[in-house]
Structures are given as C-alpha cells and as structure tokens.
Design a protein around this nucleic acid. Structure first.
Lengths: 237, 237
DNA sequence: ACCTGAACACCGTTCAAGT
DNA sequence: ACCTGAACACCGTTCAAGT
C-alpha cells in the first residue's frame, strides 16, 4: 500500500444550502439546538465557518431553514406532497378522524426533533411549508362542514397543537437521585400544595409514590380531543 | 455654586438580588429580552458586570428569577397573596367564571411583559410562584366538582393558556409598506392557499382587503372557552 | 463582605484577500 | 464563483486582586 502522508483528499462534496440545512438538523437532533453554531456546523462540514455565508444569509435564516425542513418532513409524512389519486377516495371517517390523524402524524415527526417546536415557535414568519400544512388542514375542516368563522377560531384554539406539539410549560424537574425519603417530601409538598398533590396522586392509581409522572401522549390527545369535540358541538348548532 | 469636578458621588444604593431582578425586568420590558445581558444589566445598575455574580449565580438563574417575578406579579393580581377574609364569600358565579377571570387576569400581566411567555416557557423547572398559581387553580377546579382525573387532564389541555398566554406560532409578517397592489397579491395567494384565504376573508366582514388581521383577545377567549366548556360537559356526565 | 480589572473561551459577522 | 484567514464587536464566566 502506497504511503499517503497527507490527509487523504476527500471527494470534496460541494457545499449546498441543502447540505448545510440537513447537517444543521442532524447536529440539533444529536446534540441539541445550542450545539448548532456557525462554527460547529462548519466543522461538521469540514469547511471554514465563513463559507456557510455563501449558502445561508445568517444564523437566523439558518434556523428558518431548519424549521422549514421539519415542517416539510411533516407534509410528506402526512401525504401532502403525494399527488392525490385522480379519484380521491372519500375519507372513510369524518373530518375529525382525518384531522386527528394528521395532527398525530405531525406530532410523531416533532418527537424525532425535540428542538423543532422551540425553533418553529420562535420563527416570526409563516414559512411556505407551514402555509401548505395549514391550508390543507383548513380545507379539511371546511369540507367537514364547519363555517369559515368556526374554522378560523378553531385553528386559533388548536394553536401549536395543530402542528403536533405544545410547548410544555415546565418539564418535570429531573430529580437525579430517586429521593430516599419520598414519603416525607410528599407530606411536605402536600402541605404546601394540597390541591396539586391530590390531583396528581389520584392520577397514579398503581400506588406510585413519586409524583409528576404523566403520559404525555395521552394528555396531548385529551387536549386535542377536547378542542375537536368542542368544535364539533359548535358546528352542530 | 461650588464646583464639583468629580461625578457627584451617588447615594450608593446597595446591590441586592431584588434590585438586580427588577432592573432586568425593566430592561426586558423596555428593550426586549435580548437586551438583558450581564453587561447591560450591570451598566444599568452602575456597577461592573462581575458584581452581579455576588447576587445571582448566573444568567440562567437570572432568567429563572425574572420568570418568578412575573408569575408573582400574576399571583398578586389574582389575589392569591391577599389573606382571604375570615368569611370568604362564596364565588358569585360558578367555577368556570372564576377560573376564566383568573386566567384573563394572568393574561393582562403577561401582556405588559411580552418577553415573559418565552422566558417562562423556557424555564425547565416549576418555580414556587408557578406552583402556588397552579395549586390555587387546581383547588378552584376541584371545588367546582371536577374529578381529580378530569382536573389533571384539563390542566394539560389548558397548557400555557392557564398562565394567560399561548406562544403564538407565527406572528403576522409585518409587511412594512402597505402593499400598493394588494388585490393582485391576494389573487395569487388565493390560488396557492385557497382554503386559508377563504377562511380569513370570511373573518373580515367589513370589506378589508388586507388579510391576516385577528383579534388576539377574542381568539384567546374562544380557545379558552372551548376548553372550559369541554371540561364542563365531561364533568356533567 | 462585596466589588473590580483583566483575561478566557466562546459567539455571529465583516472584510479583504486568495483561487 | 466559492472558500479562507484575520479581525471586530459582542457574549457568559473565572480568577486573582483589591477594599
């Protein structure tokens, strides 16, 4: 084997906006959104930081692009990109089931990109992909017989839930050590916040001593259904 | 008048955590959360940046403190700090009206601190003030006759709305110039996103040609009522 | 004890220069 | 045209030193 003292010259994949965005998403997935810096991103692409500016105007537009990428992923997952068959089969279930399925599919994509809700939520402008998503959702609601006004209010009521996420106000404090004397802490908590403790301990039927565990998916669906049912009830009047 | 070449020695107000937090909130109110840097904050307090670390462990805890300050403001606005009269008058209206009023009061505080929803939402741990707020809210729901399970789900469904805000997914693109040929743009938009345009133009009854205007307050209340009504319906079963 | 100055390890971004 | 190196104006934070 011939000695190659130099670092082997790589095939030299050209830098493109696509590649920059995809790499940024990969970094965020693996190491969190704070690891997405122009310098880290450049390093991952084996390039100098300043080269990025030839494909992306700046950090802010990079984040725009990342949000757009995720929503685009949702659109494909939801079948929005597939050209519908000439004879689109009428939805087997009512509009509620269709919308529900669509939103839960969006949620599944979001769960693979935990940073995405924060980034999508912080973008100030409605991106094209988001527009297409909301336009399709709107169409689904309209063809379900809801009045334009009701659809309008309903979309507001759904809020970020429409895209499959709710920015959780507080995640549970991690706790670290599995508190040795949970019972004592519990009593203290119960004294300070009797109502919260009552509710949470009622929720854990199976004799758990630790508080604060919730089934995120179930809670998400409960809230979603509450809103959808409310819309349905209003539409029927 | 005696000449005083030196900058007049100020009374030298001592630095305290209180003063640091209050100043941070004031800066955020006036110039946005991005203006809250340790260096800016120090300058406003006429002190060196490093002095802050004697009263606050770091930037992150500073933000914690700011969130706590706002939620505390909510608690007082809502009457949570006032010791209730020995003979607390039974709420004139049902639990829904009480909860509704409480949440709208929280919202009013949040509207005075536009940065607060983002900061409160980004804090990972439930602060004492938030705990007190949610505990009181929980108590209100429980005493309204809702089962612990329903209260639990309901709080999740309310989400950030419980504290008076929903992180708006997208704010309207500001637009800058009041587009000269709105009608033409509109047609183009209508072609790309027919459903969204249909809904939005139906919402503006008064012949507005510009899209995208919504009454935030009304939308907030609609979503809130949708959830509250849904809970009430479930409680009645 | 509280506050300071200088320094460190990061940021995003500009600019002139290379090919 | 695309990429680079050095530099600028910021960050949050550490550390040794002052009073």
């Amino acid at each position: 084997m011939a000695a190659q003292p130099d670092a082997e010259p790589r095939p030299r994949v050209p830098l493109t906006k696509q590649r920059v965005l995809r790499t940024a998403v990969r970094i965020a997935d693996a190491r969190g959104i704070t690891a997405v810096t122009m310098r880290n991103l450049a390093q991952e692409l084996e390039v100098e930081a300043m080269s990025l500016y030839h494909h992306v105007p700046g950090k802010d537009q990079l984040l725009d692009g990342m949000a757009e990428a995720v929503v685009t992923e949702i659109n494909t997952a939801v079948g929005l990109d597939a050209t519908p068959p000439a004879d689109p089969p009428p939805p087997a279930d009512g509009w509620k089931a269709v919308v529900r399925g669509r939103i839960l599919a969006a949620r599944e994509v979001m769960l693979n990109h935990p940073w995405a809700p924060g980034v999508v939520g912080s973008r100030s402008t409605m991106t094209p992909a988001a527009m297409r998503y909301f336009d399709a959702l709107t169409g689904q609601l309209l063809s379900g017989g809801l009045s334009p006004d009701l659809v309008h209010h309903g979309l507001h009521a759904l809020g970020s839930r429409a895209l499959g996420f709710t920015l959780e106000l507080f995640q549970a404090a991690d706790g670290g050590a599995p508190d040795p004397d949970a019972a004592e802490m519990m009593q203290q908590l119960a004294q300070q916040f009797p109502n919260v403790v009552a509710v949470l301990s009622a929720a854990s039927h199976d004799g758990e001593t630790t508080l604060g565990w919730c089934d995120d998916q179930a809670e998400f669906e409960f809230g979603l259904d509450l809103v959808l049912d409310g819309l349905e009830r209003l539409a029927a009047r």
